[in-house]
Design a protein around this nucleic acid. Sequence first.
DNA 1: CGCCGCTTGTGCATGCGTTCTCAAAGTCTT
DNA 2: AAGACTTTGAGAACGCATGCACAAGCGGCG
Lengths: 229, 229
Amino acid sequence: MAAARRIPEATVARLPLYYRALLDTADQHVATVSSERLAELAGVNAAKVRKDLSYLGSYGTRGVGYDVEFLLHQISRELGLTQDWPVVIVGVGNLGHALANYRGFGARGFQVEGLVDADPKKVGTKVGNLVVEALDDLPRIVEERKIAIGIVATPASAAQEVADRLVQAGVSSILNFAPTVVTVPTEVSLRKVDLAIELQILSFYQQRKTPNGDGPPAHAAPSKRARAT
Amino acid sequence: MAAARRIPEATVARLPLYYRALLDTADQHVATVSSERLAELAGVNAAKVRKDLSYLGSYGTRGVGYDVEFLLHQISRELGLTQDWPVVIVGVGNLGHALANYRGFGARGFQVEGLVDADPKKVGTKVGNLVVEALDDLPRIVEERKIAIGIVATPASAAQEVADRLVQAGVSSILNFAPTVVTVPTEVSLRKVDLAIELQILSFYQQRKTPNGDGPPAHAAPSKRARAT
DNA sequence: CGCCGCTTGTGCATGCGTTCTCAAAGTCTT
DNA sequence: AAGACTTTGAGAACGCATGCACAAGCGGCG
């Protein structure tokens, strides 16, 4: 079993897609899938599926396809889903609230085991079956509940400090929902989800579709100098 | 003006970052920024900033940098943020609720002008200052309010049908939050945000960090050229 | 007025990711 | 048991994105 394989980042990002597709397939009591079928379910193309899976090992059978249960096991092992990951959510506003109640996390082994907010008025209130705790208790919470993953769902202004505190408390992976850039030490993993940015990207392509007739002259001498002479 | 410039996808995805960084800069009454400074604020490197911005045009001044206001205008024009984009959210569960109340959208010109749910019990209830409407009213809503962008915040099981209905109703850009693959005609833009997938990606790297006893050796030589025959 | 220092814009090299293609390797059929 | 058929796994080519390095261009200073 060749350990320490180097799996490209792009492949890692697609493994959860395959995982989900395989779960669906298993639910329908299908024993094997071809790369073609899996590709269809995951919304990618077949060659990519095969190459991605080949990074994990030669788990397919030529002429047949992949054993669904076996592949599920391999991918979940690779993704670290064979264990449960307790997570803490910092910031119990609209978004934090929704995330705390989001069933999709628990279903994949991500149990929300802590809800934290800086606002004293929120501390002590219940969300689902959890009680909101104080930001200052973060180190204790993280240690006691062996939390490795933190979710930042605060306003942008608080995000960097919260991230710092999470790192300080011992968290080594952070998922940031705040609309701002946060930096963390290199040994800490960081991913971000920015809702407004996704819309802006859509807006870019949308705008190119709708030739909105009344378009103002592109070069509408916008204020400042900067282009004179 | 050289219209129809082709802007690489990777660049488009970063323009909102620059936009946000520039807004912050403008708030501090700073008139010009260098690519270096902008890179720092956006969390990328300076060469990338310059290359990205060069796709928009030669808007910088050598020896000086970029005029903040001018660049803001150019980027917002390119991203289509000079106009307002009414959006409709389908699915008023936890997530839909949070999205409906999320201030970040409105701040960038994305006004939520419709909330739709298939559940008759939810129709008629108020969320913020909007009343939830019926799924069947989607065509009317989209047309009357000139909505081009739809947000899917339903459970996975409903997502594909909702997407189909959105397209049918005339929406041409969709942001999908449901944890499933949805397909749309090629002329419709589609982006997805999958919360659980982000956590799974973190889990992958997290697992490689924590040498959890029975696991593979902790250090997976990162610089390994791996290419054994 | 010319020189100097700064910052942009871009050509180029490099690396990563995707896709095409096909031999290898298995199953199924007869 | 052998040949036909199917599907994987990987080599190779291609294309996109990144990062380096530097000339071109601009403002400021002497």
